[in-house]
Design a protein around this nucleic acid. Structure first.
Lengths: 343, 343
DNA sequence: TGAATATACCCAAACGTTTGCGTAAATTAT
DNA sequence: ATAATTTACGCAAACGTTTGGGTATATTCA
């Protein structure tokens, strides 16, 4: 079904049909004609050909055509989508976007965004804006800068002030967690997770420093942020030293592996070693012991991200906004005071 | 950059540029002209406007234009994307598709696929094929039937023989798990998970029946497939009866909640109650106790799904294929023999 | 009653491609 | 040397929309 066919059947011109369907008031049609057109539209299940729409309205040189759609880019690592932190974020972004009549058009994960075919799709003004989930490197950033007017960083602090951001301030979240441990009496706190470009690690360091607690190299295991990483890192850590009384993992996924490794070594959580992390993914409260973790309001973040991005697209604001979400410590079972003999 | 501009700069006609770029030999150009054109293309980073391409080549009535892209539809429930089973599947589909120069264009999760705006996007021949993740209802199915030539079911048995399928036979996986429990000596095996339209539940029932073990209503908790569901279902179950010696959960996510509930009641796994499930998501082996579960080769499934769908798109086969992936039991720590007194 | 305005419509150009057809010039065959 | 063929291109239509600029007819105002 095309406008032409509808026009023929309704006995009017194509322009009239177009205007009626798009409700552009400029050249209104009579109630009669409108009804006739809508009847045909509904009966034939007509849907506009978006290629034609885009082609027509996508002015190459000046304005962008609005496709009422946005994209999600999992920038951090290839399988970010399998990290609940990001997939939950994507889900809530989509939900909110949908509410506002935008759709989540692409959500790329394991692919190289700069591959020619992707490049095509992305650059043919097919999406109005992009939400970057996770940090992205310089190269990717400059690529995006070139091709998108509307970009928002979601999830992690990007250290880039040019675009909107909805983020969880990693160093603050870490501080929250570490302060809690210190409050319980811990001083020998290990770190298991990525250390490079990881502000959650920076928060770990700065908070210890603040309390004049030296950062010991043998207390730090640099591993990838996943259960396996947590497991391996902790195994190595415990092979190195048994002095620690607590482990801080930068995310829950890692903490799961950390806990496993500790328990496998015959140690108890929290009696022998406390475990704390950040994120509070759905399953955190169903682990044994229930994970004490800094709750990051993922759904709220996603919602805010979508709102902000769409507002920006619609010209609602022009200066880069930086929205930090609040978090709180979900105190559960995996942390306790260190035993006397440890102190 | 448009063909027109390139043509101008190269001093040739648009048609020539188009033909050179698309390497359609019909009206070849001289080596000289070709070089000149390609030089401009590369220098200016020209990318064809896919809207125009689609518009032109997407014959409404006859053949479809190939966009070298596919879509993923999370059909089962709104937040399927946060279930590692599905997100891992999506990831591997994308990976393989990308290898074959297809891209994963849309992946809808929490949205109503039949909403007008989505409908538009989907039906404007913007994707070559669709991979449905999870089971989908009649309504959705007939919708898809109408609008897509190429559809593949991935993950779960769809009981529909018209389309390609790459699946894990749920009842067999269940049988695998239950047989193992029975082999260990269990007879009082509970089920915690969805019961409607759930073939993993069917497998649970049929395997028990096969062994002449009656299916007790009070051993079955009908809850949603997530950690919370597992937790609540098991809590209710244990409030009802303490006779059970094992719990079968249809997926790992649910099993996490099941384990938590059991441990919270002061019972030990596997000494007091064994827990078994299906999927073997990444973190299954980092739980305490390590989860004994039926390993489903998700990466292989996704890979096969993408391969099959693309092969179908390219006309490689025409009859619906049904590919079942093999699975094996990953025996770990969460199952043991029931204590003597239980028997 | 005539002029101004509003209503209800249509025409046609444009968006960037692809492609059938046409046609000169260059090459080959006879 | 002429005819037949090939090579190397250009012209223009078409895909389905949107939209600026029309033009009749109908309504309102002075």
């Amino acid at each position: 079904m095309t406008l032409k066919e509808i026009a023929q059947e309704a006995g009017v011109s194509i322009s009239t049909v177009s205007r009626v369907i798009n409700q552009s008031n400029s050249g209104a049609a009579s109630k009669e004609v409108q009804d006739r057109i809508w009847e045909i539209v509904r009966r034939t299940n007509y849907t506009p050909n978006s290629s034609a729409q885009n082609l027509k309205s996508g002015k190459t040189s000046s304005g962008q055509a609005s496709s009422h759609s946005i994209a999600c880019l999992f920038a951090r690592k290839p399988d970010a989508i399998t990290d609940p932190f990001f997939s939950q974020l994507a889900r809530s972004i989509e939900k909110e976007a949908f509410k506002q009549n935008y759709i989540l058009k692409y959500s790329f994960t394991a692919i190289d965004i700069q591959h020619p075919s992707t490049f095509h799709l992305i650059t043919n003004n097919q999406v109005d804006g992009v939400a970057i989930l996770g940090r992205c490197n310089k190269q990717l950033l400059s690529f995006l800068k070139k091709h998108f007017n509307y970009v928002i960083y979601t999830g992690l602090n990007s250290l880039n002030a040019k675009y909107d951001q909805v983020l969880c301030e990693g160093h603050l979240a870490s501080e929250h967690a570490i302060e809690y441990l210190i409050g319980l009496g811990h001083t020998r706190i290990a770190y298991v997770g990525e250390t490079q470009n990881e502000e959650r690690y920076i928060g770990y360091c700065s908070t210890l420093r603040k309390h004049k607690i030296p950062i010991r190299n043998d207390f730090v295991s640099n591993v990838m942020l996943c259960s396996e990483g947590g497991y391996r890192g902790t195994k190595a850590l415990l092979a190195r030293t048994r002095e620690i009384t607590a482990v801080f993992a930068p995310n829950d996924l890692t903490a799961i592996g950390v806990m496993r490794a500790i328990q496998e070594e015959g140690l108890r959580i929290p009696e022998d070693i406390s475990v704390i992390s950040i994120d509070d993914i759905d399953m955190a409260q169903y682990l044994s012991p229930m994970l004490t973790t800094v709750h990051v309001p993922l759904d709220e973040m996603g919602k805010m991200a979508a709102k902000t991005l769409i507002d920006r697209i619609q010209g609602g604001h022009h200066l880069p906004m930086k929205i930090s979400v609040p978090f709180y410590l979900a105190v559960r079972e995996s942390c306790g005071s260190p035993r006397k003999m440890d102190l």
